[in-house]
């Protein structure tokens, strides 16, 4: 089992009477792309800010790289890059100067600065003021700032915010390539279809509490798959299947939806219907999407 790069113990944060994060026990394995999901106001950004030491927890502790953030903040942050709620840029400075500023602060080399510009493909626009950048370029420059420290852990809060489809595609490619460079990625996003394509691990938070944590496969295993059928005698088919013990939902017209687990179930249902003289026009075993599972867990 991979070592946990991020581990939180009973992480809790209260704002007055509001319990924003409640006893969170995150476990993010090294080398993973961990997607941290939740509805608006679920506590994602508060959690991310606590992971970076921007907000102090009311209770509990954050451990990064096996060390508590308390008392080891500087040592830990040397290995962490972050992009929190959009890029923080000085608009009057050029892209290169924005990176240079952070480079001076963390005492990185100019080679690291230029490498970060290269990774996010901003070399050609590096000497233009950041205020002239498009949203996508600003987001990429924000990512370059996060990559400047040569991080082992990258924390990205809504990295695709405001990006057009091409920008989202570029960002996805960038993120997918990071684990191969030894970078663990912890990201929050609202774009579940995008997350599904990049994440190896999922954490779902709602009302400050973790509803699920594990791999995408583990999440799938918790959810029922559905068999969609189109038949010529839907009422009869419903009776036949119900008599055989299947959970059947009629979806109107000739369409039926049956709770089924796998292809073997699908084959059995098909056989039962055809043996009863019912013609099956269409049969499809549907895996629930991440969006379906997210909505089911947070509904």
């Amino acid at each position: 089992m991979a070592a946990q790069l991020i581990q939180t113990v009973n992480l809790t944060r209260r704002f007055g009477d509001v319990l924003a994060v409640n006893g969170l026990e995150l476990a993010v394995p090294q080398g993973s792309i961990y997607a941290f999901l939740g509805p608006n106001g679920a506590g994602k950004t508060t959690t991310i800010r606590m992971l970076l030491g921007l907000i102090r927890p009311t209770e509990g502790d954050v451990h990064l790289f096996g060390q508590s953030l308390r008392g080891n903040r500087k040592n830990i942050l040397r290995k962490v890059g972050a992009l929190v709620e959009g890029p923080s840029l000085y608009p009057h400075l050029t892209g290169r100067e924005n990176l240079e500023l952070t480079r001076r602060l963390i005492d990185a080399t100019t080679a690291q600065r230029d490498r970060a510009l290269h990774i996010v493909k901003l070399v050609d626009a590096a000497d233009r003021p950041a205020r002239t950048y498009s949203t996508g370029m600003k987001q990429r420059l924000g990512l370059a700032l996060a990559l400047l420290v040569d991080p082992e852990l990258l924390i990205l809060d809504e990295p695709t915010n405001g990006l057009d489809p091409a920008g989202i595609h570029e960002m996805r490619d960038l993120i997918c390539g990071l684990p191969a460079q030894g970078i663990t990625v912890f990201l929050s996003s609202h774009l579940l279809s995008e997350v599904e394509q990049v994440a190896t691990h999922i954490g779902i938070i709602q009302q400050g509490q973790l509803r699920f944590q594990g791999t995408l496969d583990e999440l799938h295993a918790q959810m029922d798959t559905q068999l969609t059928l189109e038949v010529d005698q839907p009422q009869r088919a419903k009776s036949v299947l119900a008599a055989a013990g299947w959970q059947v939902k009629s979806n109107g017209g000739h369409r039926l939806v049956v709770d089924a687990n796998n292809l073997s179930d699908a084959s059995m249902i098909n056989a039962q219907l055809t043996q009863s003289g019912i013609n099956v026009y269409h049969i499809n075993l549907e895996q629930p999407t991440l969006e379906d599972m997210f909505l089911s867990l947070t509904a």
Partner: peptide, 18 residues
């Protein structure tokens, strides 16, 4: 305003700098 205007404190305070 250099920091407030572009929400820089969250970036600066997440760096390994005192």
């Amino acid at each position: 305003q250099w920091e407030h205007h572009s929400h820089q404190w969250k970036h600066l305070f997440a760096l390994p700098v005192s």
